[in-house]
Write a protein that binds this DNA or RNA. Sequence first.
DNA 1: CCTCCGCGATACTTCCTACGTATAGTGATG
DNA 2: CATCACTATACGTAGGAAGTATCGCGGAGG
Lengths: 302, 302
Amino acid sequence: MEARHLRYALALAEHQHFGRAAASLGIAQPPLSTQIAALEREVGERLFDRTARGVFPTAAGDAFLARARGALAEMSLALVDAGRAARGETGRLRLGFIGSALLDPLPGVIGRFRRTHPEVRMTLQELDSSAGSAALLAGELDVAVGRGSPRGTGAEQLVTVPIGADHLVAAVSVGHPFAGQRSVDVERLAREPLVVSADAAGSYLRSVFEPAVLDGATLARDIHTIAGLAACCAGVGLGPERMRLITRKDLRFCAVEPRFRLPDLQMSFRAADSSPVLAAFLSVVRQNCPDVGGRLDELLGV
Amino acid sequence: MEARHLRYALALAEHQHFGRAAASLGIAQPPLSTQIAALEREVGERLFDRTARGVFPTAAGDAFLARARGALAEMSLALVDAGRAARGETGRLRLGFIGSALLDPLPGVIGRFRRTHPEVRMTLQELDSSAGSAALLAGELDVAVGRGSPRGTGAEQLVTVPIGADHLVAAVSVGHPFAGQRSVDVERLAREPLVVSADAAGSYLRSVFEPAVLDGATLARDIHTIAGLAACCAGVGLGPERMRLITRKDLRFCAVEPRFRLPDLQMSFRAADSSPVLAAFLSVVRQNCPDVGGRLDELLGV
DNA sequence: CCTCCGCGATACTTCCTACGTATAGTGATG
DNA sequence: CATCACTATACGTAGGAAGTATCGCGGAGG
């Protein structure tokens, strides 16, 4: 049985007349008769009653036609759905990110993507940079946002683009002596109790402070915790500049002198991932983060 | 797009290999390549990634394959459903009947039909004989059970078979003088207050009693009401012998002398009705009412 | 009652296209 | 670099779907 048989049977049921049904199909009447006969032979039942007043489906014909309509509808949906999937309008995107990314570039990107691709199911989860690249390589994520380029086994299977630069800033409670200052020296900071992210304490902060200073610091899992601890006088919080987007009445920020540039925020995905949803997401990222457009343009082959 | 394209795409997705998929389809590899290419051209998207490790569906391919499975499933169901409809296993049967038929032949017939054809939706309604044939002709019923052969306009469009003979019996309250008697004479009955069905009072009872007797009788709409009225001493109930199947402690029956044969119970349907459900129902009737088998055998062409 | 007409089925031819065979192109692997 | 495995391409063939002509049948009308 071929789709042709279904189309012919439906046309015949609609026109109740072999000649007119054939004309509507753009064929002559005899082949229509032949094909309907072949269909009835395959089904093993007479599907149409040929009467003098017209051609009408039998009970078996009615049952058959209902399914035939369903089958043809599925076939057109196959075409439509394939196109939508190819354009990244349907599907799934699993995004992992560090807390600070949720402050600046992600809200705009995610919001715009959800508006333009409402039928893509998104999974969002906060995790640290190294867990992000590991989950990417394990196939558990499609996009990871972290700080610094992924290193280690399999990192060459990932493509990574910078999506935002950052400098170190200090966060203090509103009652702290630093609270009114526009900036504070690193040497001064080293004499204060510090609150830093566990991630940073193990990596880039080691090029700013002596190990002994960091070993005495309070560790926090994410940027919001640093801000909260600093606000309640647990110490001087250290984090990226976008931490200033956290607005609390009991919190003040100071630039750190000399300026220290943190590793960039980076967005990674599997180089071998050809998912149209990913491509659509990257295209939204390019529109929302003009700074990194050049790099993505190459990757998207524009 | 033809069903062949769907089958080929599914086989390719299953085997992840053009050669083996082609073999499983019973064709050579080049035509499979050609057909898949044609399908991808029609859909407008690449549906499979040909890699060194195998052939894998793209995102568009996955979406397409899901619909393709649905479409092919509908097509096989079209065959199955047509067969079931042709055998009368699915569909609808609208049955109208007079109350007395519900006492004897219908419970067995309907019960057996429902067991053997559980997916046929049945509509049952009690109505009098003339309303039954009218509803048949109006296309509102498929089968009608009444007493006596339908007469009047359009009756020749109906086929009618007898499904049960009946004689007149009297029903009286347990306290009535007739209660202990095996039989009672018609002349004796004529001097009692009577309870009869409105239908019968207007037709066959007129050949048993004087019009004056019937004009004084209490009229009931159906056989159960006759029995109820007789039981509470409203008069002597008259009805078909199968009324004896109504067992109430406060009710007794007497044969009527001389025996008077009522018009037979008849089952009617449209002669032009070729519904397989009707045929299946008639076949059950034939098995359940051996008396009328001969007549139905002819009609069913056995 | 016969004829005519409309419609579907059948007979036969034509042509498209799906299939088979042979082979070239391509990417991975030793 | 050679080889191998696999898919794509080229081309001839054959099966079947469509076209043309005609038959058979059932209903309407004279």
